[in-house]
Nucleic acid binder design. Structure first.
Lengths: 269, 269
DNA sequence: TAGGGAACGATGGATTTGCCACAAAACTGT
DNA sequence: ACAGTTTTGTGGCAAATCCATCGTTCCCTA
């Protein structure tokens, strides 16, 4: 009668899971809780904490989790930072741009804010300033960031949930945006050329366009690293933008195009 | 002109922040990143790591953050777990209930899912099962949890963002729900008595009611710890529910009321 | 049934982190 | 200006964690 390994243990011990299944559960757990502890998981799966540590190593190698002493956590609110957005230089850029843009907002104004890493930086700056305002957004990280500030009313768009960006897109989103009129809107873009800003994700381009249409004043937040590049879908012409907020003044063709359309250029810091 | 302490240091050293400001920034940072390290913050603010530790202590005392070895993290996706929901026993309960409820869903069905810790457990079970379906929800954690599963289309409701629960409420939410018809809806509640389920947060009660109305089949997910209690706002009568999913069969008045209405009782495990 | 390989557990020393108590510094109100 | 309070820094020690290594167990396949 050999083993019968489950019976031999005979306990309420959770029966031994395969490695892959255990790792899948770790990832799922991280969707529930932002942080898991090494020891807790070891106990729950009935394995040694060394094994969990090895799981962490493997998963973090694939970029699915991030490690911290004593545990692991999910990578940034489900919002995938593509490689180039990781460098410290770009973080500083975005912070400066975000602060400059937030300074444009006056108490009592209504805003629309788009999805993207630059607009998250903007949201953060706005929350720090403590400007009282109403914000409509299709980005979950933006909503969560703004929620730390006092006196900011947040309205989230409906739509199809896009996990990679934690944002909402689709016709529901567009229809919803159409129902509002706001003082300003703040959008990002994945590229900007003399023809105007463009966006890699097509669903986003439509949202940005719609926001610009419903706002009295449109602001584009974009880092100089994206100057002169072109994305898949054109978002708008410069005529639709009242100002662009950048970390460095544009030059050449781009500067000329902006001059023609009369778009203000706000250089952060 | 005396000191000019910032000048005396003369460095790019970030000028000394007040305690309250530093703590506010820590909270903001946690909206951006799910996890912060003690050492990183110490360096960034130019204070000792012991100070950061004290900040962590204070903030976690207020329930604003949770601590982990080497750092701190935001409390469960911005979703406040009230004390009684923390015990391991209740976690196990909810897991069982979630799995039982997820088994009800067939491939290709359309669902509505409400906000709450039990429905998050349901979402997790559904994602693990890998059932292909379309889900409409007003809960951000539910949306994020479901996003791990393959083949699940997620549609999020619009509405006013409620940071404490990471959920959406208000007339926008209700109007949106009204536009859909689904096969099933899964809701939670903060209490259940012979009169029916009730809810502590009034905005939620309206959402739950509306979801029940638009679904061919309504399921209530609730732990036995909530039996016999009453919340602020009544959600529905048992006649509106096709089944309740519980971890233990109800008794007495509650059982009698359920028998009268013919509501199925599904006991998990 | 035996062999091979992967997964896991155990051990021990280096490192990190937590925690406590006391001292220095900054801030506050009079 | 001064005294008291609050906040922060420092040092030492205990505990937890990390990491590399090695032996064992389990599973799969020939």
């Amino acid at each position: 009668m050999t083993t019968g390994s489950a019976e031999r243990r005979g306990e309420a011990v959770p029966l031994r899971l395969k490695k892959s299944e255990r790792r899948r559960q770790i990832l799922l757990e991280l969707k529930l809780q932002p942080h898991v502890r090494n020891g807790d998981l070891a106990e729950r799966f009935g394995v040694s904490s060394e094994t969990i540590r090895r799981d962490f190593d493997a998963l973090s190698g694939e970029g699915l989790i991030q490690r911290a002493t004593g545990g692991a956590y999910a990578p940034a609110h489900g919002h995938h930072p593509s490689l180039d957005e990781r460098s410290a230089a770009h973080v500083a850029e975005r912070d400066r741009i975000g602060r400059r843009a937030a300074a444009l907002v006056a108490d009592g104004e209504t805003l629309m804010v788009d999805s993207g890493s630059t607009t998250i930086a903007f949201a953060r700056a706005l929350a720090i300033l403590g400007t009282r305002c109403t914000v409509l957004t299709n980005s979950i990280p933006v909503a969560m960031t703004l929620a730390t500030g006092e006196g900011i009313a947040i309205r989230l768009c409906p739509g199809d949930y896009l996990p990679a960006e934690s944002a909402l897109v689709g016709t529901d989103t567009l229809d919803f945006i159409d129902r509002f009129n706001v003082d300003r809107c703040f959008i990002g873009a994945s590229a900007i050329s003399a023809e105007g800003p463009s966006e890699a994700v097509q669903g986003f381009a439509a949202v940005k366009r719609r926001m610009l249409k419903r706002a009295a004043c449109g602001h584009l937040l974009i880092g100089s690293a994206k100057f002169g590049r072109k994305g898949l879908a054109r978002v708008a012409g410069f005529a639709d933008l009242d100002s662009i907020v950048v970390d460095r003044a544009p030059e050449g063709e781009l500067a000329a195009a902006l001059a023609v359309s009369g778009t203000d250029i706000l250089v952060a810091q």
